[in-house]
Design a protein around this nucleic acid. Structure first.
Lengths: 143, 143
DNA sequence: CATCAGATGTAAATCAGTTGCACAACAAAT
DNA sequence: ATTTGTTGTGCAACTGATTTACATCTGATG
């Protein structure tokens, strides 16, 4: 969630045309406090504007490729959150295996020490992700 | 990879009938050094025995439910490895975003400090997973 | 041997996401 | 203002992984 971000500006400075659909998708992701699915985003936009599902998928792909957003897969579908940046520090996520929801956790909640792992690993490391899995508060109540 | 495991015995002690298909699936997963997809497992079994894909999916579901194996999703498909146990300590995984392969990393390669997070979190925590993403050694060479 | 629950096979369905192609929008060139 | 070209969008059909519904087989037990 971020009220400091100018989404049109972010797109421009990344070299992307700030089309309405792109701005809308990025804004919805940026202003939400947990990662959203393509379906979530489609539904949100479709409430006020005409848009096609495929367009949403295409915009999500484009934004991911330019590392403006970050995909998470809960085993059912992808959810997208803002990629780490000045206004958005990296943080762990909680995955509810019951409802599939993904929640952002505090950056400090889980600390990681990568030791000299990066130096030793023979491939290229892009990202270290910490995922906590379980049953969310809400699903606990329901069961 | 584990030569100390008696897969028939593991199934029995979990209360599951050690059918040929179940033993085969569990054995293939247990003897492999990285998580495998349903397709991988199907192909391996099908080389020597007649089996249906659906059976593989059903066995994987059953074994997962009984926590003998652990599913990982690389964004394309599920891969299954042995669940943590005496012979199989929990460990991080590397996900290659190019070929989709998942590799097991040393348990010590990445250390995690969960602080008092578990105490504070309002839901139920089953598992803390560390995933390293990037491009594997092999895909690095190819590109 | 008969019976019955549980395991397996088969075909069809589902679900998220992708592709191919036609059309629209917008900007630069004529 | 019209033409052209590039890029974005819509629509329909497709794909791949997984699940479902339902029929059939199998193995243990009486």
């Amino acid at each position: 969630m971020c009220h400091r971000c100018d989404y049109t500006e972010i797109l421009k400075s990344t070299g992307l045309d700030p089309t309405k659909n792109r701005v809308r998708v990025l804004e919805i992701i940026g202003e939400n406090n947990s990662p959203l699915s393509a379906e979530d985003i489609f539904n949100t936009i479709a409430r006020s504007h005409r848009i096609n599902r495929v367009t949403v998928y295409r915009v999500l792909k484009l934004l991911s490729e330019h590392m403006l957003i970050e995909p998470f897969n809960n085993g059912r579908s992808f959810h997208y959150g803002m990629a780490p940046s000045k206004n958005h520090p990296p943080h762990p996520h909680f995955f509810c295996k019951s409802c599939g929801k993904i929640e952002c956790l505090n950056p400090e909640s889980v600390m990681v020490d990568t030791l000299n792992f990066e130096k030793v690993f023979p491939g290229k490391i892009d990202k270290l992700e910490i995922r906590v899995e379980g049953i969310c508060k809400n699903c606990m109540k329901l069961s």
